[in-house]
Design a protein around this nucleic acid. Structure first.
Length: 561
RNA sequence: GCACUUAUGGUGAAAUGGAUAUCACAGCGGUCUUCGGAACCGUUAUUCUGGGUUCGAAUCCUGGUAAGUGCACCA
């Protein structure tokens, strides 16, 4: 429809001697204005030394002669906007499409036949999975689903940090306590808490004693080179527990990974690549290997330190190389917090020197940091709320509100509420998470979406039991809810183009609100069979769209709530 | 010091350069034996600051103020 209007405008402009490729057709802010609008008259009136309004009227009279009968009315308003009113036949056709395509409605074909790789939630094994990770996971998962809706073949991986000086510190404490200690613990949760504690203790001891420092370095070296030793044994135990925990917690959040690329793996690959490109791309400086970013308006970064180990920079080069080698994606998206923006600019720039397509096809999306009650979280210093602790606390609140709810549903609501808090805003700014104020089950919230959907579905089921089937009545007028539903594909497309989930969350909440308003004024099931069936048709379209819209956010919906 | 990011009601946010700046929370006032009230309706209140570009600016440019982040061997 949009295309049709665009063409109509182009034709009209052409007949007046204006040739243009891009005409802007948009949804007016206020639906009362019309179904589509364009600002071309204001753009081109100047070149014609004509009043925009007069020019708009001239265009309208031309278009009136050429328009198809799907366009009911074209009018001029305000400073020179041209508004198009579309016939209800078009909307009924579109609603019918929703009803038949169901969960495929809104699916785009922008990246049909392309491959997209998404990397997110990359944890530091041995560091607890804390509330900050939930943010990365939530955004990453939603972007993954949006990517799937683009028609692309999507793979999703995570990149766990499994080797670092920090891990050496934790392993040092494990050995100090003896491995019996960890083996004596019963549950994985206890073991994990213990490992987190090792990390914190190790960091402290490392700072306080030179002796510990050199021992930790030795341990780390042995781990890097996988030299068989007590530390390697301890490390393997810790890594397994952490990885298992990670897989469980992201599964609880609704994510699954096709594969992992480990930092230890990437480090070797990256180091080799960097070394092969001295001195063309990388240069030696004070015993280290660096990339002189200043030449590109950036800053210098160390890729291999003076002890001969790859830094994060080299590892990221290795990671890129492995991603393209294993998946050969057309687009490679990864998600980190925004503190790494400048850092990745340098790495990406350097990567482009090695292989142009690594730079061109890589998309870096960033998000803000999550602070907890105003204090910045540092996993190194401990005292950070674990993701699981936080979710459990929210689950308690859900149960308080609704004591009859089952565990699974309570989990869905708690997580939905958390996820929505993260996704409703454009990724980028920091979120200060305070359960007292940030968590809402009402209004602009995850549970509002879930509730609205559950209620709508419940009505549909009830009607079905009574023998009603959704069926549209062409005599009926099209309301704003129905019109709004047909905008869904364009919202999905926008989210794909920007890799921004918040357009979807905003759309979902608006759609839910429109439905609830309509619901408040409409007796869906009534004596009147035709009326009932038509209402059910609208409800059914709404359910299809909102179900998809919620799914794209990575939020699940319980049966009852 | 240099670079990047940000500044919207009391709070949290939205708005490809467009029409009366939208939404939620909180506040205030209503709806209420309903197809599921985690709902609906009404109401109060907002673009940091000076200048510029434009028919038109929250949005673009520029000066200022404030905040955050990054700048060599940490991850």
């Amino acid at each position: 429809m949009k295309k049709e209007i665009e063409n109509l405008i182009k034709q009209a402009l052409l007949s007046l001697g204006i040739e243009t490729e891009n005409v802007l057709v948009e949804y007016p802010g206020d639906m009362a204005h019309g179904d589509f609008a364009t600002n071309v008259a204001m753009l081109y009136a100047k070149g014609r030394a004509q009043n925009p309004k007069d020019f708009a009227l001239e265009l309208v009279s031309i278009m009136n002669d050429k328009k198809s009968n799907l366009i009911e009315d074209i009018s001029v308003a305000g400073p020179g906007f041209i508004n198009f009113k579309i016939s209800k036949e078009y909307f009924f056709k579109e609603l019918e499409k929703i009803n038949t395509e169901k969960e495929n409605y809104g699916k785009s074909d922008i990246y049909n036949g392309k491959k997209i790789l998404v990397e997110h939630s990359s944890p530091n094994l041995f560091k607890p999975f804390h509330i900050g990770h939930v943010m990365n996971n939530t955004i990453g998962e939603s972007i993954t689903r949006i990517a799937s809706a683009s028609g692309a073949d999507v793979s999703v991986i995570s990149y766990p940090s499994d080797i670092s000086l920090g891990i050496g510190k934790a392993v040092y404490v494990m050995l100090l306590d003896g491995l019996e200690k960890i083996q004596s613990l019963d549950t994985d949760t206890e073991k994990l808490a213990y490992l987190g504690e090792c990390y914190v203790r190790g960091t402290k001891m490392f700072e306080e004693s030179d002796e510990v420092k050199s021992r930790v370095k030795e341990i780390t070296k042995n781990l890097y080179e996988k030299i068989s030793s007590p530390e390697l044994d301890a490390y393997e135990i810790g890594k397994e527990i952490n990885l298992k925990y990670f897989i469980n917690i992201v599964a609880r959040l609704g994510s699954h990974f096709d594969n992992f690329i480990f930092e230890s793996e990437a480090g070797k690959v990256g180091q080799k690549i960097v070394e092969e490109n001295i001195p063309e791309i990388f240069t030696k400086s004070d015993g280290a290997v660096v990339y002189e970013g200043e030449k590109e308006g950036l800053h210098t970064r160390v890729f291999i330190n003076s002890e001969g180990y790859p830094t994060y920079e080299s590892k990221d080069i290795g990671l890129m190389s492995l991603k393209f080698e294993k998946y050969n994606p057309n687009i490679s998206i990864f998600i980190t917090d925004h503190e790494q923006t400048n850092y990745f600019e340098v790495v990406k720039n350097a990567a482009g020197k090695i292989n142009k397509e690594w730079e061109e096809k890589t998309v870096h999306r960033t998000h803000g940091r999550m602070t907890f009650k105003g204090q910045k979280m540092s996993s190194r210093l401990g005292g950070v709320p674990l993701a699981a602790t936080l979710i459990d606390a929210v689950v308690e609140e859900v149960k308080e509100k609704n004591p009859d709810i089952d565990n699974k549903s309570a989990d869905m609501i708690a997580i939905g509420s958390l996820k929505y808090t993260i996704l409703r805003a454009k990724a980028g700014s920091n979120i200060n998470f305070d359960p007292e104020t940030s968590l809402s089950f009402e209004g602009d919230s995850g549970p509002y979406l879930q509730y609205t959907l559950v209620r709508a579905k419940s009505v549909l089921n009830k009607a079905k039991e009574q023998g009603f089937e959704p069926k549209y009545n062409p005599e009926k007028e099209i309301g704003i809810l129905e019109k709004y539903l047909t905008r869904f594909p364009s919202i999905v497309e926008k989210s794909i183009n920007e890799w921004a989930p918040h357009h979807i969350s905003g759309y979902d909440i608006e759609a839910a609100h429109l439905f609830n308003s309509w619901y408040g004024n409409t007796k869906i099931i009534s004596e009147d069979k035709e009326e009932t069936e038509h209402n059910l048709f609208v409800t059914s379209c709404f359910v299809a769209v909102l179900e998809k819209g919620i799914e794209l956010l990575g939020i699940t919906v319980p049966e009852k709530m």
